[in-house]
Amino acid sequence: MMKNYRANAAYFIKEAVTIFRFNLFSNILSLFSIALIFFIFAMMFSGWQISNHAAEALQGEAEINVYYNQNIGTQGIFQLSEKIKGINGIKKVRLVDEKEAYSRMEKILGEESSVLKIFDENPFNPYLEIKIDLEQTDLVLNGLKVLPGIEHVRNNKEVLDRVHSIAGTIRIFGSLVLFAVGLSTLVIVSHMLRQGIEHNREQINTLRLLGASEVFIGIPYLLEGLLLTMGGGILSGLASEWVVRKMTVQLASVLPFMPFPQAGVLCQQILFALSALSIFLGIAGSMLALSSAKPD
């Protein structure tokens, strides 16, 4: 049987093109409509990726500061930081000395930094800056409590909890929106393919009456579906790449504090998602549509 299908490969392709040409205007409209739907999907996908990236960046910035006893010496600081690294949920430990603490405050205060000049000596103490996994904030704080040599932990727990909550909300909301758009895309595309198949319903039924198998009848329509979805995927991919490159540049200049993923990486992800979506929808949509084209 497979041999028979292989022998008919050229026919299947030719037939798919014939079917496409036979309803040319309607198929061209479908192609552009699919491209548009995919474009909307790509935009939602890029929004989801950007928000995920922002959420990750926000989480990555989650840090707590550990102020230690100034008498423990260099060796003591080293030992303390090694012990801290051993706690679950710690990503990175870094020493911020007095000079760096001073210059950071200068940056934060900006034009108001002249106020620091009233101090004869540097008023800031060195501390250990610790990047943590937000999921394990409580575990980290409990671990730090039992370590000797620590005088004070500035944990900003409320802020960290809020960051955690915002990041989670962004992820969940983004995923839900993307899922809804993906589902609508599947429904709309399969409906469009079904409309195309409905145009050829009589021919399909004639082939059934002549004894052709469902697979033989279905392959050209499957190929036509793939032609439409992949054509739509290519068009929307080109449009999305152009828009995403422009958009990231624009957004980065308007929202400089917002961490954006690299345009090239984002475009690659969009193109991959569109390719997978085109192939999946071409096959699934055509099969759904064919199964709904029941005999008269």
Binding site: E202, T206, R208, L209, L210, G211, S213
Partner: peptide, 15 residues
């Protein structure tokens, strides 16, 4: 469906 392969139908509206 398989039996139809041994039948040659000529439909009224040709199809």
């Amino acid at each position: 469906r398989k039996l139809r392969r041994r039948i040659g139908p000529v439909f009224q509206e040709f199809k």
